[in-house]
């Protein structure tokens, strides 16, 4: 049975659609920037732009980690708690007199351990991702409060706390951290076989297993990456606010999930990218930033974010239905 000429002449619809969706998102981001530039005098000031980049940076990194997990058709609710807990670990280690690099490596390893625990709970104990990460969400906050006895630990290491305020080549160092994470994340998800395995496990784990994919290892990997990203963000946050406090980053897991979903990730798994969540995170940051500049009641920001999620995901659904 030969392929007819009409069929082979047809272009691949899927890739075109994805590019279109990414362009729409970037367009939305630019439209917001232009509108805010016209609507407010202070939006396009260097100070505000670097503020915006700092605000968006941490959500963006969390969203990238979260996306790995969501692509496997899982969810990581614990990332906000891990951020808060990591600030405590960081501050505690510095207070105890460990060198800075030891504190950073140790905090990252704590992230790896938490992610591995999630993998263990899902793979070995058979718990749903929602449950195991919900459990760590609440207990990590508790552990952090126990360590600090409910108070905060100040960080006195100047070099460390200056980092978050520093610029490099005129761009905030926090935004450089996004690039530091995003480039290897892109290579990992889109250019390596491990990325392909994440998609395969999210689409049909049994088919992946029977094709020789180590499904358990893939799941461990996704949750370890997500938790490590969160621990990394915890280090950045500790640098930014100069304290360790277990109640920090309340609700950031929802911001991360929202960014990921706005960026085109499907909560049913097997659909997602690295660039989508990054754009999603900066769209959310822009809305928050703009609302501040426009003196909109901060409660409205939450409502707008909610509406935006509905609108964008709805349009994405329409697009998918149309291409079917």
């Amino acid at each position: 049975m030969a392929i007819t000429s009409t069929e082979s002449a047809a272009v691949a619809p899927r890739r075109g659609m994805n590019v279109l969706f990414s362009l729409t998102l970037i367009g939305l981001l630019f439209a917001l920037w232009i509108a805010l530039g016209i609507g407010t005098a202070s939006f396009w000031t260097p100070l505000n732009i670097s503020n915006l980049l700092r605000q968006g940076a941490m959500t963006a990194i969390l969203a990238v980690g979260q996306t790995f997990v969501i692509i496997t058709a899982g969810i990581d609710l614990s990332v906000g708690a891990i951020v808060g807990f990591s600030t405590v670990v960081m501050a505690w280690l510095l207070q105890a007199g460990f060198p800075l690099w030891v504190a950073i490596v140790a905090t990252l390893l704590v992230g790896v351990a938490i992610g591995a625990f999630h993998g263990f709970g899902i793979v070995r104990m058979g718990l749903p991702p929602f449950i195991i990460t919900l459990a760590t969400l609440t207990s990590l906050r508790g552990v952090g409060l126990l360590i600090t006895n409910g108070s905060t630990i100040s960080i006195t290491n100047e070099a460390f706390t200056n980092f978050a305020r520093a610029d490099f080549l005129g761009i905030p160092s926090l935004f450089w951290m996004v690039i530091l994470i995003a480039v290897p994340a892109y290579v990992f998800l889109h250019l390596s076989r491990w990325g392909r395995y994440l998609f395969a496990v999210g689409s049909n784990s049994e088919a992946a297993r029977l094709s020789g994919v180590n499904v358990n290892r893939t799941i461990y990997m996704a949750y370890i990456l997500s938790a490590s990203c969160a621990a990394f963000v915890g280090i950045l946050l500790a640098s930014r606010i100069g304290i360790g406090n277990a109640t920090q980053a309340e609700g950031w897991e929802l911001q991360a999930i929202a960014s990921s979903v706005i960026g085109g990730t499907s909560l049913f798994g097997a659909v997602g990218s690295v660039h989508g969540p990054l754009i999603g995170a900066f769209i959310l940051a822009t809305i928050n930033n703009g609302a501040n500049l426009l003196n909109v009641n901060s409660f409205w920001q939450r409502i707008i974010t909610g509406l935006l999620i509905i609108v964008i995901v709805y349009f994405d659904q329409l697009r998918r239905r149309g291409s079917r």
Binding site: R196, Y197, A200, N204, A207, S211, A270, V271
Partner: peptide, 19 residues
């Protein structure tokens, strides 16, 4: 249920065992 990742491209499915 066992053979294919249905919502992924044909190419990825074919290559899955040989990545």
């Amino acid at each position: 249920d066992q053979g294919l990742c249905l919502n992924l491209p044909i190419g990825l499915n074919i290559n899955l065992p040989v990545f």
